[in-house]
Design a protein around this nucleic acid. Structure first.
Lengths: 338, 338
DNA sequence: CTGTTAGCGCCTTCAT
DNA sequence: ATGAAGGCGCTAACAG
């Protein structure tokens, strides 16, 4: 049972294989009846064009690659949902390059953005480092950085999240509620993946404090690997100290969950004894009534694809730089202590 | 800046392009020094073999396709995590075919399991229907059904979840706690995607009731589309009736969240006024202390890949049929009313 | 409108 | 050990 090729169809339909190709590709220059005949034998032979051969011949991969770190994190999934939505109707397939190690991060960033691998590449949340620049600059396919940035990469499309502003907004909100002892629990500020969001949010946090004349207390910043359990541990530590904070700002909703768990464990009522705020507004945040900073995750995926497809169609276009909108979502894990 | 091909390398290195190919593919029959020279020019030319061309020439796609419905649902993600984990080290790339419409479901099931598209296919949670059988039977690549089944498809590898047993287990547990009025909230039992889990769990639920001599009350079964909001609505309806249930079994944890919300809204305390149990044991279940039935989601993805890769290597092997383990996880949304 | 032909980039067999 | 040539299945340009 050999695979049916275009040649079989041509022979069976009594036409040249160019004609079959034309039919497949909806070329207008085929007579109605020939097309009909070809279509029929395609059906009876159960023929499907070989995508690999098409790709080679077209010189296109018909694939969009997305390089994402830890693709099972809720915030990442939300972005991917947006990507998928806008890609489903297109002619492109989606390949996901999941990055969970630094080695793989480097490999992906350096080797995937090439014509041989994809017709367009989305890079999520992995800000290029100086060493990556040359690879990205000579990328011969459209690239969109989403939630990632590098000042020198103005040649790439970028959807930037202003995490400094987000951190500031969150902290200012807590300050306005009367909080003075505000903890910040985050993942590692400096990390080999070059995730910058926690660091930027920290900068915003510091700025807000400073603007309000509140000195920064190093005891109020604890960090470790990302995760609910880790955040749980850190929060417990921070809340068990001599002078525990009255509010904790976690650098993601997932980590905020850990903070909530720690509070529960220590018998602290939220928000009465402790205000908690997260970041991202993932789906579960609403269920939990978690106050948080919403970033448009789903939309960032959608918009990223949009820009990518535009750039594929029109490679000469000026690279796009957009700042993604963020928004404070007040729910009921935060309370005024005035 | 044309793409560098194997020919450029050959010319530059002063060898035939066959030799370059041999070097790329670690053929032993290349002299040390020639290999060295080729390797060097590969590096200086920054050459990467074109995967599309390799695929065509090898007659392999080097891709594993996974067909999944609603890939952003937590339970699905968990399975995909397992897949990704076991695939990362292999030579295969992962393409995800996300199914959110019936049309797409049929297209994917019928056209993806072919040599032209992938070297192996995983199908998650989409049980084939009779009409799909011929397509699947003549699939010329290894296929693994995970959480999906069809009695007549013994030629395919299958990882089966015994949802009848799961539904029975959940219901028996509630009965043992003294509950007699037990609601079941689920998605549509008959649906065009042919998801069978809710229906099977319902069967188990009915079996358990019947075994305990409890007549089935149709008012205690409500169903609609899948989702937290939908389940919320159904639960509210059921709990607002004349004779509300003392326990509700939801056909997924996500839906159990909706039930919890409804209870909260109606001022019912969980578990004192209402016992709630879910299904799946997704990550958030632990955080919420939700009693549930755990299925090995992550492991099912891993095992699926394992079987797939084995079958690719050894296509003659007998198809595997395994029943995935389930387990009752008791937490604190359920209570005895004896 | 349609058949024929020359690649697309790589792998593999066949001589050498 | 290595070079040359044929072929993987398809598209597109060229004749007719």
């Amino acid at each position: 049972m050999r695979t049916v090729t275009i040649r079989d169809v041509a022979k069976r339909a009594g036409v040249g294989l160019g004609t079959v190709s034309r039919v497949i590709n909806d070329s207008p220059q085929v007579s109605r009846e020939t097309r009909q005949r070809v279509l029929e034998t395609i059906k009876t032979l159960n023929y499907i064009p070989n995508p690999t051969a098409r790709r080679l011949s077209l010189g296109k991969t018909l694939m969009i690659a997305v390089i994402v770190p830890f693709f099972t994190r809720p915030s990442v999934i939300e972005r991917l949902r947006g990507v998928e939505h806008n890609l489903a109707e297109s002619e492109y397939d989606l390949t996901i390059y999941n990055v969970e190690t630094v080695k793989r991060r480097d490999e992906c960033i350096r080797s995937i953005p090439r014509r041989e691998y994809a017709d367009g590449v989305l890079i999520f949340s992995l800000s290029p480092r100086d060493e990556d620049i040359p690879y990205l600059q000579k990328a011969d396919v459209p690239v969109v950085l989403v939630d990632a940035n590098h000042p020198r990469l103005t040649s790439l499309n970028r959807l930037i999240v202003d995490d400094v502003a987000g951190g500031r907004k969150a902290t200012e909100y807590l300050i306005n509620l009367g909080h003075r002892k505000i903890g910040y629990i985050s993942d590692l500020l400096d990390n080999p993946f070059n995730f910058t969001s926690s660091k930027d949010r920290f900068i915003g946090y510091r700025e807000a404090l400073s603007k309000a004349g509140i000195p920064f207390n190093p005891k109020y910043h604890l960090s470790s690997e990302h995760g609910r359990y880790e955040a749980h541990r850190l929060a417990k530590e921070m809340l068990s100290s001599d002078e525990p904070p009255s509010a904790i700002f976690a650098s993601s909703d997932t980590q905020a969950l850990g903070v909530l768990e720690a509070a529960r464990e220590l018998g602290l009522r939220v928000p009465d004894d402790l205000s908690v705020m997260g970041y991202d507004d993932i789906e579960i945040a609403e269920f939990l009534g978690l106050t948080t900073i919403r970033q448009l995750l789903y939309e960032s995926g959608q918009r990223g694809v949009e820009i990518l497809l535009d750039t594929i169609e029109n490679p000469q276009a000026e690279p796009v730089t957009e700042i993604l909108h963020i928004e404070l979502i007040v729910r009921n894990t935060t309370i005024s202590i005035n």
